[in-house]
Each structure stands twice: as C-alpha cells, then as structure tokens.
Design a protein around this nucleic acid. Structure first.
Lengths: 177, 177
DNA sequence: CTAGCCATGTAAACGGTTACATGATTGG
DNA sequence: CCAATCATGTAACCGTTTACATGGCTAG
C-alpha cells in the first residue's frame, strides 16, 4: 500500500520524505497511517528499483540544510498506473480498496468508469456470499454465541449496502454531504 | 488478534490446531483470516507463556494418529477476559473492534452493557473528528483530486453512521435482518 | 486406488511499528 | 533562548503470509 501511495504523491511533484508523511497524514490518513520507520526505507527501496530518483538539496545549493527530494521516474509512473487500473476486489480490505479511490482523479474518465463498474460487480458478488453466510447462521439461531456471530455477518451486509450507496454517489461525482 | 481469538475458542473446549483454523474460517473469518503459518507457531507461543496447555492424543491412546489438543489454563482465561473487557477504541481497525463482539456472549450482561456504552462514546468522538475533517475538505472544493479526498472522508462518515445503527440494534439483542 | 480432507509443521520474506538517535530552523 | 516543527535515519521487533514439506485417514 505505502509503495503505491508514495508513487501517487510523487507522480507529478517532487517531495521530501517529511512532506510525503505530512501529505499522507492530512489526506488518506483516514485509510492508511504511515510512520517514518516504514517511509524512509521505502524511499530507498523505490530508488533501488528505479521507480523514483533522489535529488539532494545541497546539489541545487538551496541552503546548508540537508533535504532530499524524490520524484517519480517514467517506470514509476507506469508501475503506479498499472496498480491504479488493476481490479479492486474482495477480500482485500476496505482501506486498500478505498485508498485507490483517493487517486481516481489521475484516471481518464473511461478508465474510471471501468474501475467503478468492476468494483460494483465485485461488491455485489460479495453481497451474495454474505447472504449465504447469513442463511447458514439463521439455520442454527439458538445460543447467545450464535447471536453475536450472526451480528458480525449482519454487519458485513450493512457495510456492503453502505458501500454500494457510496459508490453510486461518488461514481456520478455528486455532491457528498 | 489471533492470540485472543485462539484463547476465546479454547475458553471452554479443547481443540486441535486444525479445528481452530476451521472454526475461525467458518465464523469470525469475515473479520480475520488465519493461516497455519501463523496459527501453529502461536499455539507454541501461548504454551510457553503458560496460557494454554498441550495434550498429545497418543497419550490418551485414542489412535495411532498424532493429534494435539490444546486447552486454556486459568491464566489464559484471565488474560482473555482482560482483553474482552478492555475498551474498544478508534483508531483500531473495525475488524479488531468487531472481532471482540464475536465473543460478547462470554461477558456478563453488565459487562456487556458497559462495553457497548464505552464503544458508542468512542464512536461519537470519532464522528466529531470526521466532521472537522469534512469541513476542512469543503474549505477547498475546487480540484478533482480534492473531490476524491472528500469522498473518502464522506465514506468514513457513512461508515460511522452505519456502525452506530448496528450497535444500537445489537446492544438490544434485536433480531437482525 | 486415489482424491480429498485431516493434521502438523518450518523457513523466508514482507510490511509494518516503536523507540531511539541526531540535529537544523523558525517563531514567539 | 526555548519550544515546536522540520528533517533524516536506524535497529529491534512483531504478526503475518506464502510456499514448502510430510504424511495419515476415509469414502467413493
């Protein structure tokens, strides 16, 4: 996840590690929490993979302060776009699924339409699965323990229904309030 | 998480590792997916911590087949109960939060009431936080990118509202359909 | 007899957190 | 001058996944 978020943030503007962290905290932070302990090693890793490049601020003589700017390479952009257009599917976590939506402005309208269509299909398939589970639960509705098991499955259903409604709104770029 | 699930399953009945895996897959599987690669080492770990004990089936001369039954010790039960009554709070993931609810039949009615009360308080606090975020988003509603950022925050709000409704139902042990 | 389930495990890797360590810059 | 924020990093650890490895039991 972090890998893709970083590439997304660096897509058209260079950032320092510190700036990336701040950006994440203030935006997708609801879905994904980053820590310096994972971020800095990730930047090194992406460099060694050739997906981003590092520019030391001392090179550009900006100031005496050591500051490292990272920017995406063409390879990194391609890699990111491949991820962004790849299907969003269950049972991947909602956080991972919606983390992708955060970058949907980087898709062309047709790509976006296709992503939503695939996602909605995947959601409805999962809903069917949950209905089967719910029936299986109802088949033995005796103990208190079974009640709470049923409650979890029921939660899953309400979550899916909520996600479906949300999807329909966002897809049409309607005002959200 | 796995630690607590295992202790919950072993609370009043001995199980083999394989049986525990099956039990998880068929019940809390919606919230937490277990793999043998994490389960078997966890059983060893809980043994060495004195929270569970191992009984080899060959000891009881059941058959030639090697089968290891695990059961919770008193220490393990106390440990589990401590976890179960500990506050459920954000920003812990929904999966972790609701995974606890699966074991709510093991709480006394007053304990359960208190858990729900604390949880509902925690939910409403988080809702307030999201409202602040939503306002901050609305303050700069220009670009497409901001739209999708707002969509994530909005999803958070609908998730919280859905969770609130679910909580109210489950708390009263109403029929869920 | 063989496919599928029962049953136990290990090793390497992954993705991440937490705590630690250092030090420059800026604003009140 | 001091606190907060900017800025970069490392080391130890954690929980987990994936793939591998082995083999017994059972029903068709």
């Amino acid at each position: 996840m972090l890998e893709h978020i970083v590439l997304g943030i660096l897509y058209d503007q260079p950032h320092t590690g510190y700036e990336i962290k701040k950006e994440i905290d203030e935006t997708i932070g609801i879905m994904y929490r980053a820590s310096f302990g994972s971020l800095y090693p990730m930047l090194k890793k992406l460099c060694s993979k050739g997906l981003i490049t590092e520019t030391d601020s001392s090179d550009t003589a900006e100031s005496g302060r050591i500051k490292k700017y990272y920017q995406s390479t063409e390879k990194g952009k391609t890699y990111f776009h491949t991820w962004l257009t790849a299907p969003m599917e269950f049972p991947d976590s909602i956080e991972n699924q919606l983390g992708k939506v955060y970058f949907f402005s980087m898709l062309t309208p047709p790509e976006r339409t296709e992503q939503f269509a695939g996602y909605e299909k995947s959601i409805s398939q999962f809903r069917t699965k949950l209905e089967e589970m719910h029936e299986a639960c109802m088949a033995k509705p005796d103990s208190e323990h079974d009640y709470y098991h049923g409650a979890l499955v029921y939660y899953g259903q309400t979550l899916i229904d909520n996600l479906t409604r949300w999807c329909a709104l966002v897809k049409k770029q309607k005002e959200l309030k």
